[in-house]
């Protein structure tokens, strides 16, 4: 039930981002001159590293899901014994990678504002911050969800099926946000 509801909600989220993509392509087709000058200011190497970090975080998330599905909530061995890691450890690692991504986004925004790309500077600035900003808010929401899911492993005595379902649907959301970023990255940084 929870999983089906999450997927239905993610479908509507997809349409939300579809709207942002449509705005981007519309403005790009009308104001090609803005795009020619403003996309020059993007820092592709930095954004690529940031993108890679987010994609890798999805891998850690999935490793955590497999542990959750087997009902292993915490590590069985020492901290550095990766094979014994449970869902909690992998989710903490996912959280750290996600937090790194958000920190990178903030630095990128600061750099772009210095070069006069702001939310109110022009059409390019508006759509750039709207698209990446809404995505950033979604990642932040995902980070909060990870904290709550990790906290749940401490408040219950047994790691039940309901607990695991919570972890799995959080991973659905995280993978979704990750895929949206790949599309946004391809559109904004590579296609320009």
């Amino acid at each position: 039930m929870v999983a089906v509801g999450t997927i239905v909600w993610l479908s509507s989220e997809l349409m939300f981002f579809a709207g942002l993509f449509a705005v981007y392509f519309q403005l790009r087709s009308v104001r090609g001159d803005l795009w020619a000058t403003q996309t020059e200011k993007l820092n592709l190497p930095f954004a690529s590293v940031n993108c890679l970090v987010l994609v890798i975080s999805s891998v850690w998330c999935q490793l955590g899901v497999w542990k959750a599905e087997r009902g292993q909530k915490a590590r069985t061995g020492k901290l550095l014994d990766l094979k014994g890691w449970g869902m909690r450890e992998w989710y903490v690692l996912t959280y750290l990678f996600g937090a790194f991504f958000i920190a990178g986004q903030v630095m990128e925004y600061a750099e772009l504002v210095h070069e006069n790309v702001t939310l109110s500077s022009d059409a390019y600035g508006s759509v750039f911050y709207m698209a990446t900003g809404f995505h950033g808010l979604h990642v932040t929401g995902g980070l909060i969800a990870f904290l709550l899911i990790i906290a749940r492993t401490f408040t219950t005595r047994r790691y039940t099926h309901a607990n695991a379902t919570g972890a799995v649907v959080t991973s659905y959301y995280w993978h979704f946000v990750d895929v949206v970023w790949i599309a946004l990255f391809a559109t904004i940084y590579i296609l320009r």
Binding site: V8, L10, L14, A18, A22, F25, S29
Partner: peptide, 27 residues
């Protein structure tokens, strides 16, 4: 291919159905 909004909307509509269909198939 000169009108990008419709193309974007249609591609994403197709993907929306693919996402839901794939999930139902997996389930």
């Amino acid at each position: 291919w000169s009108e990008p909004i419709g193309v974007t909307a249609l591609v994403l509509t197709a993907l929306l159905f693919a996402l839901s269909g794939f999930y139902l198939w997996m389930t």
